[in-house]
Amino acid sequence: MNKQVKVHSALFLVALIYGANYSIAKEIMPEYVGPFGLIVIRVVSAVLVFGAISLFITKEKVESKADWGRMALCGLFGITLNQLSFFAGLNLTSPINASLIQTVSPVMVVLLSAFLLKEKLKVNRMLGILLAGLGAMLLISGKDSGQAQGNWLGDLLILFNAVCFGAFLVLVKPLMAKYQAITVVSRIFLIGSIGSIPFGIEQVTSPDYSTFPLSIWAAIAFVVIGMTILAYLLNIWAMKFASPALVGVYIYLQPVFAILISVYFGKDVFTWQKALYAAMIFGGVYLVSKPKKSTV
């Protein structure tokens, strides 16, 4: 398997994990664990796992204060603000609204990449983003009107989350050219946890965990192992070889997976219109990945 296929496979799997998370996390919040409590479970687990790998296996050190400063910004935008706004917003709004608003993030990635990384705004990349974004919006807007709707505060928090994640993808790119993925992710989770834990410490200590059914423990395990540890490692590893815009545009696959999962559990019907919208999304991903022949 060549490197290009590996990178796209990693980004595809990340999109699948995040697409499933919209429904799975809603099963946990707020009946069993509050949104900020779930964040504490995530970041503490990640700090322990990534920290142990970094300390005992890679043993790589951050070289300069400037790099620590950039990691601090990555921790702020990629963990603290990103997680607090996402789970608080998802707790208030519907998974459909959340996945729709997330499509703003790749636009921010392209704009910030042009401003901070001096990447050129090529025509095919912009067309790919527009095509994928249109496909995602048509796909989600095709849901039945009887489905649960979000509220303005939840939607606003998800929008802020999308902006923060876009900023994170751009900020972390130079670090990935210099350090191993585990070195970066362990530091940004450690920094991000400092800002996250105070908000969720009460919510994580108040539930009676002995009453949780097996299905909720499985959902928590998915959020911790799949969405947190595996998704972050795959995402950051892929950024060694992919542009921030390509990483960002894979967000457009999330609503595809969210609806497919709904179909599997009998909560939705797959139609030819949805197949067309999904094809638009894949076409957009292809256009964004095409510009540079030397990279993916």
Rank of each mutant, 00 (worst) to 15 (best):
S23V: 09
S23K: 09
S23F: 07
I24D: 10
A25M: 12
K26Y: 07
K26Q: 08
E27Y: 06
I28A: 08
M29S: 02
E31M: 13
V33Y: 08
F36K: 07
I39A: 13
V40T: 09
V40H: 04
I41P: 01
V43R: 04
V44G: 02
S45D: 11
S45I: 13
V47Y: 02
L48G: 02
V49I: 15
F50C: 12
F50V: 10
G51R: 05
A52N: 05
I53Y: 15
T58D: 06
V62D: 14
E63Q: 03
A66Q: 06
D67Q: 06
D67I: 07
W68F: 05
G69R: 07
R70N: 11
M71S: 01
C74D: 06
C74S: 06
L76F: 15
G78I: 13
G78A: 09
I79G: 05
L81I: 14
S85A: 11
F86I: 14
F87W: 15
A88T: 14
L90H: 02
L90C: 04
L90K: 01
N91M: 12
L92R: 15
T93C: 02
P95T: 07
P95R: 08
P95V: 11
I96H: 01
N97Y: 05
S99N: 04
L100M: 12
Q102W: 05
T103M: 08
T103W: 00
S105G: 09
V107F: 10
V107N: 00
M108Q: 02
V110E: 00
L111I: 15
L112T: 02
A114D: 00
F115C: 02
F115Y: 11
L116W: 15
L116G: 00
L116S: 01
L117P: 00
L117H: 00
K118H: 15
K118D: 10
K120L: 09
V123Q: 07
N124S: 08
M126N: 03
L127S: 07
G128A: 08
G128M: 02
I129T: 04
L131Q: 15
A132Y: 00
L138N: 03
L138A: 11
K143C: 01
K143W: 04
